[in-house]
Design a protein around this nucleic acid. Sequence first.
DNA 1: ATCCGACCTGGAGCGCGCTCCAGGTCAAGG
DNA 2: CCTTGACCTGGAGCGCGCTCCAGGTCGGAT
Lengths: 141, 141
Amino acid sequence: MPDPLIPVPPADVPPEGLAIGDAARAVGLSVDTLRYYEKEGLLLDPAPRDGGGRRRYGAHDLAWLAGLVMLRETGMSIADVRVMADLSRRAGTEAERLVVLERHRERVLAALERTRRHLAALDAKIASYRAVTAPDQEDPR
Amino acid sequence: MPDPLIPVPPADVPPEGLAIGDAARAVGLSVDTLRYYEKEGLLLDPAPRDGGGRRRYGAHDLAWLAGLVMLRETGMSIADVRVMADLSRRAGTEAERLVVLERHRERVLAALERTRRHLAALDAKIASYRAVTAPDQEDPR
DNA sequence: ATCCGACCTGGAGCGCGCTCCAGGTCAAGG
DNA sequence: CCTTGACCTGGAGCGCGCTCCAGGTCGGAT
């Protein structure tokens, strides 16, 4: 049983699992995106189906999805997420997963740093525009 | 004379300006991207040409480009950069530019915050994998 | 019984932001 | 003079990550 990327499920899940619409809302993705991710092999397993062939997302699936969203939101590509999923399906690959995650972490930190620097430049520009457009509140006397 | 988005030119520029290749290197874009940005109207003016019809980027142009890169790297869309460029071409639009920049700043801050939160989750996961794959260095006795 | 909305599949389409290509011009160095 | 390499244009192509569509099934409320 490969462990989820994130420890805690995002919501309390009924035993029969959530329908795709509810699951999508729970993790902040669209229904189409959920199906797309499944097609692309980003899930640990295709979501289990109920009697009528409809997907049912259990706590396990939702936890993985939450981790997936975390990776995507920090800018990991679909291809790299697939690598993580593939690794996570096989036992004994923990060290490799760690390597992937740590490399990703480095990239995230670098991106954060760049963004922070550019944000400072943005703030400077905003300040200069404020000075131009509102030369009133400046050093009131 | 619309002021540049960023006060300081990224390098010392000869009076005749830089050729597109050097300009690209200076601001960290590709030659194709520079031409693409010009086609898309993201520059204040099309880059001035020398006798042979080749582009020459002066300090002014490079300063604008540096600001453009700042906006792009903080995630502003091409369309919104174009809005900034259009505004910056017309005098008296300082307040509007400020609005655009401030809205953008809000989005950047929100993105930074989300990334920070997801980074924390990533760190937690990495820590848990470290515990699994290297249960040695833990509390050595 | 029937209606409605949520779900299903396979596959096409799309918006973004470049990136590359063909075919040509030009200028400087050997 | 000739070659080389950087530059030019217009336009096609592409990788990514969805998003949408047609045409159909299913289950619960009325």
